[in-house]
């Protein structure tokens, strides 16, 4: 079989991705995400969103299919692909006994970020996310939102070309949520790519350049919000209307 042709300007290219846990969780999924865009992957509970993202980040081995990140075959050369990728879990686990600076120091080491780059960047990220006053406190006393922001700082420390996030705004208050969204937009303006899942459809509607809706591990619709609204037909004015229309039968 010939390898899939590389799409120019494509940051993430997924072809025929399959994963089964007894029953199919992801079923021949194709995705093409361009550099410099925010892509929201939506779907009902158990649709296969997290499984897809975990396979992209090398946390799960696919049963079949291919994954290319920035032109690198992520299954054949996982270390190179991981070097330009960052993963942010929905419930990030930090080291309770480390403070945010120590955590970032460790993450910087994992991605081999030179100290003279990591030090100012860590400070900048912690300041930007409002964590600078807490830089010396152990993470065990942090609220869920503070932990989420610390993990986000860790994910951004090596300046990843592809940032993959599972429910990045859950647990954040309105102010923190705004901070994160601004940070993501700023990253995307510099050519970085963000792929995220969310159950807050308003976030996807306002933040994402393109939206993919999956159901039963398969893509059922993809495009900008206006594309999806047009596709769903008259009367579907919000993303919630469109989502419920396209996933009818699952979300009942």
């Amino acid at each position: 079989m010939l390898p899939d042709p590389i799409v120019p300007d494509c940051m993430l290219q997924v072809r025929g991705l399959c994963k089964s846990f007894g029953r199919p969780a992801v079923d021949h999924l194709d995705l093409t995400i361009h550099a410099g865009e925010i892509y929201a992957l939506l779907g009902p509970n158990g649709a296969g969103k997290t499984t897809t993202l975990r396979m992209v980040c090398g946390l799960l081995q696919p049963d079949a299919g291919s994954i290319r990140i920035g032109g690198i075959d992520a299954l054949a050369e996982p270390a190179q692909a991981k070097q330009i990728t960052a993963w942010l879990a929905d419930e990030p686990l930090l080291y309770d006994r480390l403070n945010p600076l120590e955590y970032l120091e460790f993450v910087g080491g994992l991605w081999q970020v030179p100290p003279d780059v990591a030090r100012p960047l860590a400070e900048e990220l912690l300041r930007e996310l409002g964590l600078w006053p807490h830089r010396g406190e152990p993470c065990e006393g942090f609220s869920r939102g503070m932990k989420q922001k610390t993990a986000l700082a860790g994910a951004l420390l090596h300046d990843p070309a592809l940032l993959v996030m599972d429910e990045p705004l859950s647990g954040l208050d309105a102010g923190a949520s705004r901070q994160v969204k601004d940070l993501l937009r700023a990253r995307v303006r510099t050519g970085r790519t963000v792929v995220l899942t969310t159950h807050v459809l308003e976030v996807a509607e306002r933040l994402a350049d393109r939206i993919g809706i999956i159901r039963g591990g398969r893509m059922v619709a993809e495009g900008s919000f206006s594309d999806l609204r047009d596709r769903a037909g008259p009367g579907q004015t919000t993303l919630e209307d469109v989502f419920l229309h396209l996933t009818a039968g699952e979300v009942a």
Binding site: C57, L59, L93, L110
Partner: peptide, 13 residues
């Protein structure tokens, strides 16, 4: 251990 996600997503073998 809880840090397996972080380690597995990093380029460290």
């Amino acid at each position: 251990r809880g840090d397996l996600d972080l380690l597995l997503s990093s380029p460290i073998p």
